[in-house]
Design a protein around this nucleic acid. Structure first.
Length: 858
RNA sequence: GCGCGGUUAGCUCAGUGGUAGAGCGACUGAUUGACGUUCAGUAGGUCGAAGGUUCGAUCCCUUCACCGCGCACCA
């Protein structure tokens, strides 16, 4: 046999790059190139697209390992195994990272043009995307790079738009003036999932509100409270009827309060009475909705108090609260204070700022609304899929978690006020968002000229005086401030952007108020120079030129491309919705979108997919939504099995995080111990869905195992007859007890590994092959074979026949050794692809081990 | 408040209705060899507590304790 002598020890760094290239060049990562591809049964895994911007971390290493094992196993079993890779633009996540970078450079996204910001992030991500893909390759991932997809690929965006339009027609997405979780730092709304709660201890104030006592932890929101709510069955308050009006002395003077009876009130809590702030509290909002009550904004989007707060206007919550409490005290409205009141505060999951609920017009997905064609709601379709086992979740216990979450689902807010994402394909026929030529102001100056007794105002930009009536628009948020004219002041402010509802317009009486609004939103550098008081705004503004101030009809047009004019009123001034989609709106469509993006044939061949493998931490974010979208859009479940893995932790069970400094860099580990060692360590001795502690010792141990396999091969190959044809046609005959035993053990191992892999018990499969290879084969059989290979072995019979027997035995032993080795390499290949393929190649096999057939029972 | 998971060797974790397993670590010995070592062996666990079902429980049921987590809510 023309074996090359194997090196003394396995050198992963030398082999891995070469082997990966060999696989890649074979073309077999693309299942359509596999032998007899068309006869094969498809087996598809869509890779959860990693954040294109993030370098490979150990969590990626884990899921890449698991999915690659499943893919390689199925490929060897003769299936048409497609593993489709991709990456995610990860809207909010990435923008947050980028904003930090800007901050370091002394810049701010709020001072940038949206397009410019998008472009910069695009370039930033493209650079990192390449790095992340290199990492995936180094893990040995046998995914089909020819189908690599990015969530911002034009084909994907087109499908996302199509889905959105379809849902719009089906009434499943709607634009609503609803309360949202608003992050003051990031200036965007967030879904319920993107916030977290933290228990804090804060004073609870008991305030006198006419004849009632109400409790609040947030006195700064209470200025506009004019409804007092109690339970309809509360016996203490039977003398008050729903709708009664009473006069009460409140923070800034007398107001008229209205009695509201609502069952949402907990009679046990405090006095059983509360006042409501619908603009800034979800529960209050719902009560107001139920009874059709007024809603008033008290706090602006930057967390400052509005004019309703009187003397506290423009103050931030933190500074205003103690002053307000002080005022309440002097007015004798403060009854008592519970200093150590514990409650949960809702925070932004990224920056930990307190979430300020705000009413913002946004797009929502209706989760519980049945379809017009009689199909159940998105939620119910998805629930049915798991109930009747069309979609199976492993481990099973997560099915309960999933069901519970689904049953308590609220509508999903999908608008994000950030640049990095897929823009809404929505156009408003409305002048306030008109997109026509504008006068641009980079640095915008409002001058208040004191000229004797009269005041005049000038809007200045780089020396230009603007004398026309102009409309002031903040370019970043597209917020309209109003009209401004120098001599004839006519200023409108639009509080929120539901432009179809004229009731939400508010008007500034004069430029003074406009200035106040500016100052509140954008603290200026104030400069007083002689008689001229200038406020210089270092923010980008645009002013619409007068010819574009004609009102539109309010029509909403769904279109990916800018429509030329409004189909209803022919108005040409259409504005695109300034928001972008929640990332999960696009990644939720990933299974069918990726396949559709390859063309109809791919979708027909590979959809529905077999396995969705991902972390349990994104079960709600992602898996639930994929099931809903998939069934809605294609009428079929997107996958039949959801396989959930745990979180990789450090050896002390600590969650890895940059701040703790315990982050394991998988590429560093690979450099030291090799990819196979890392892969095996990640799945060895850990069951599905439980968290995985990873220690260096474990990886080290698995490196030893890779090396052991190498040396087993070395032993077997060097002990073969030089001229021996390695092809074995005749059946193996066990001649000794050892022979018999090892072949039985091998059969058993094949059974176990196959069965365990089929049932997603990867760790048990790994342990089984480990045990067989090292203990049964290396320690026992190989040791025994040394005697069987020896010519001088003594046998009972006569001399010549003894020689013959001994030669026969030797030959048979060689065959068994080789047979076992071949099977070990095959069984181990999904787990340790590099070392096994490397040995296979050294054995001068014609075919790649990657596409060899999986061991069968004899 | 509702729910979930865990508690097994010094450490990290598998596992099973019938004398308890792995990796790492510890200890003893062997080994010039296929093996950047490896092998043989030793020590070490009333499988969180109590009760129940069973011929038999670490495993199934109930209760409890401790640790961890998810969801919801707090005027």
């Amino acid at each position: 046999m023309a074996q090359k002598e194997l090196a003394k020890a396995y050198n992963p760094t030398e082999a891995e790059e070469r082997i990966y290239k060999l696989w890649e060049e074979s073309g077999f990562f693309n299942p359509d190139n596999l032998p007899d591809a068309k006869k094969r049964e498809p087996f598809t895994i869509i890779m959860p697209p990693p954040n294109a911007n993030a370098p490979l971390h150990v969590g990626h290493a884990l899921f890449l390992t698991i999915e690659d094992i499943l893919i390689r196993f199925n490929r060897m079993q003769g299936r048409r195994a497609l593993w489709l890779p991709g990456s995610d633009h990860a809207g909010f996540e990435t923008q947050v990272v980028f904003e930090k970078k800007l901050e370091k450079e002394g810049r701010s996204r709020f001072k940038m043009e949206r397009k410019e910001l998008y472009k910069e992030i695009w370039d930033f991500v493209q650079n990192n995307k390449h790095i992340s893909e290199q990492g995936i390759k180094r893990m040995g991932s046998s995914c089909d790079w020819s189908r690599n997809t990015f969530t911002l690929d034009p084909a994907i965006i087109e499908i996302v738009y199509e889905t959105f339009e379809q849902m719009y027609k089906d009434g499943l997405v709607y634009r609503g003036q609803r309360i949202s979780n608003w992050c003051i730092k990031h200036q965007t709304s967030l879904s319920d999932l993107e916030t977290k709660y933290e228990e804090r201890s804060e004073p609870l104030y008991y305030l006198k509100y006419g004849p009632f006592t109400i409790a609040t932890a947030r006195p700064e929101t209470k200025f506009g409270d004019k409804y007092v709510v109690m339970h309809p069955e509360d016996k203490r308050y039977t003398q008050y009827k729903h709708g009664d009006k009473i006069e009460v002395e409140w923070i800034n003077g007398k107001i008229t309060a209205t009695i509201i009876k609502d069952e949402a009130i907990d009679q046990e809590f405090g006095t059983g009475v509360m006042t409501i702030t619908p603009w800034h509290d979800p529960i209050d909002f719902e009560i107001a909705q139920r009874h059709g009550l007024d809603k008033e904004q008290i706090i602006d989007k930057l967390g400052r108090l509005l004019p309703v707060a009187g003397e506290f206007q423009d103050m931030k919550i933190k500074e205003a609260r103690p002053l307000i409490v002080e005022k309440l005290k002097t007015k004798s409205l403060l009854e008592k204070v519970d200093e150590d009141y514990k409650h949960n505060v809702q925070l932004c999951y990224k920056c930990n700022s307190v979430i300020e609920p705000q009413i913002i017009p946004q797009w929502f997905v209706a989760m519980t609304k049945s379809l017009k064609d009689g199909r159940p709601s998105l939620r119910d379709m998805a629930l049915q899929a798991t109930e009747n086992n069309e979609v199976k979740i492993i481990p099973e216990r997560f099915e309960k978690v999933y069901t519970h979450w689904m049953q308590n689902l609220r509508d999903w807010a999908i608008s994000r006020q950030i640049a990095w994402g897929i823009p809404f394909p929505v156009w408003y026929c409305n002048v306030e968002r008109a997109n026509m030529p504008r006068i641009h102001f980079a640095d915008f100056t409002v001058e208040q000229v004191l000229n004797g007794k009269t005041k005049t105002y000038r809007l200045k930009n780089k020396g230009h005086n603007i004398s026309d009536k102009v409309r002031l628009v903040n370019k970043t948020t597209q917020e309209v401030f109003g009209y401004a004219t120098i001599t004839n002041v006519e200023i409108k402010k639009i509080k929120d952007i539901d432009l179809s509802d004229k009731a939400h317009y508010s008007t500034y009486k004069n430029l003074d108020e406009l200035l106040v609004a500016f100052k509140r939103h954008y603290p200026p550098d104030q400069k007083i120079d002689g008689e001229t008081e200038s406020y210089i705004y270092d923010y980008a503004f645009e002013a619409l030129s007068p010819e574009n101030t004609k009102d539109g009809c309010g029509q909403i047009i769904i279109s990916g491309e800018a429509p030329k004019k409004c189909p209803v009123c022919k108005n040409k001034n259409l504005t695109q919705d300034p928001d972008t989609f929640d990332t999960w709106f696009s990644s939720g469509q990933w299974p069918y979108a990726t396949l559709m993006a390859q063309g109809k044939k791919d979708f027909e061949t590979y959809y529905p997919t077999q396995v969705m493998e991902t972390g349990w931490d994104i079960l709600f974010f992602w898996v639930a939504r994929m099931i809903m979208f998939g069934i809605y859009k294609t009428g079929q479940k997107p996958f039949s099995t959801v396989f959930l893995h745990g979180i990789v932790r450090d050896k002390d069970r600590q969650k890895m995080s940059k701040s703790k400094g315990n982050v394991v860099d998988p590429l560093g580990v690979i450099d030291t111990y090799g990819t196979d060692a890392l892969r095996f360590a990640l799945i060895f001795s850990t069951s599905a869905g439980t968290d995985i502690p990873l220690s260096e010792d474990k990886v080290k141990g698995m490196k030893h195992f890779a090396n052991k396999v190498w040396n087993i091969a070395r032993f077997v190959l060097t002990n073969l007859e030089k001229s021996k044809n390695k092809k074995q046609k005749t059946k193996l005959q066990p001649k000794t007890e050892n022979d018999k035993k090892i072949l039985e053990q091998l059969e058993q191992t094949i059974k176990e590994v196959t069965n365990n892999l089929e049932n997603f018990r990867l760790h048990e499969a790994a342990q089984s092959i480990y045990q067989f290879t090292w203990r049964d084969f290396a320690d026992v059989y190989i040791e025994a074979s040394k005697k069987q290979l020896s010519n001088s072995m003594e046998l009972d019979s006569g001399k010549s026949s003894a020689a013959k027997t001994s030669a026969e035995l030797r030959e048979n032993t060689q065959r068994i050794l080789l047979y076992c080795l071949q099977n070990i390499l095959k069984l181990l290949h999904p787990f340790m692809p590099f070392v096994t393929e490397e040995i296979w190649q050294q054995m001068e096999n014609e075919q790649l081990l990657m596409v060899e057939t999986w061991p069968r029972l004899r």
